[in-house]
Amino acid sequence: MSTVPYAVDSRLLRSFLAVAEELHFTRAAARLFVAQQALSRDVKRLERELGVELFVRSTRQVGLTGDGERLVPHARRVLEAQEELVAAFRQARPLLVDLNSPGLATGVRVLRRAREIVPELELMARYESGLTYAAAEILAGRLDVSFGRFAGLEPGVRARLGQQPVRYEPMTVILPEDHRLAALDAVPLAELAGERVYAGAGNPRTPEWTDLAARLFEGRGIEIAAPAPLAVGEEEFRRVMAKTRSPVLAVVDFPPMPGTVARPIVDPVPLSPVSLVWREGLRHPGLDALRRAAGELAKAEVWLSHPEDGWIPARDALIMMTFT
Rank of each mutant, 00 (worst) to 15 (best):
A183S: 13
A183K: 08
A183Y: 00
L184R: 13
L184D: 01
L184K: 10
L184S: 02
L184G: 00
D185V: 05
D185C: 01
A186G: 06
V187T: 08
P188H: 06
P188L: 06
P188T: 09
P188D: 03
P188W: 03
L189C: 07
L189T: 09
A190P: 03
A190R: 15
A190W: 03
E191C: 09
E191A: 15
E191F: 07
E191Y: 05
L192Y: 02
L192G: 01
L192R: 01
A193R: 14
A193E: 14
A193F: 02
G194P: 11
G194F: 04
G194V: 02
G194M: 06
E195D: 11
E195Q: 12
E195S: 02
E195H: 02
E195K: 00
R196N: 07
R196A: 15
R196I: 00
R196M: 05
R196E: 14
R196Q: 13
V197K: 04
V197S: 09
Y198G: 01
Y198C: 00
Y198Q: 10
A199K: 03
A199Y: 04
A199Q: 06
G200W: 08
G200E: 11
G200T: 08
G200H: 10
G200F: 06
G200C: 05
A201W: 01
A201I: 00
A201K: 10
A201H: 04
G202F: 06
G202W: 07
G202T: 07
P204L: 05
R205D: 12
R205F: 02
R205H: 14
R205N: 14
T206A: 13
T206S: 14
T206R: 11
T206W: 00
P207Q: 09
P207A: 06
E208D: 13
E208C: 05
E208T: 13
W209T: 15
W209A: 15
W209Y: 15
W209R: 15
T210E: 14
T210I: 01
T210K: 00
T210F: 01
T210Y: 03
T210N: 11
D211Q: 13
D211G: 13
D211H: 11
D211N: 10
L212Q: 11
L212F: 15
L212M: 12
A213N: 01
A213F: 14
A213G: 09
A213V: 09
A214M: 11
A214W: 01
A214G: 11
A214T: 09
A214P: 03
R215L: 14
L216T: 02
L216I: 03
F217W: 14
F217E: 08
F217I: 10
F217S: 10
F217V: 12
E218L: 13
E218I: 00
E218H: 14
E218V: 07
G219R: 10
G219N: 06
G219F: 04
R220A: 06
R220W: 03
G221M: 05
G221F: 04
G221S: 09
I222A: 11
I222T: 11
I222Y: 10
I222H: 07
E223Q: 14
E223P: 01
E223M: 12
E223V: 02
E223S: 15
I224E: 07
A225M: 02
A226E: 15
A226C: 05
A226T: 12
P227L: 12
P227Q: 13
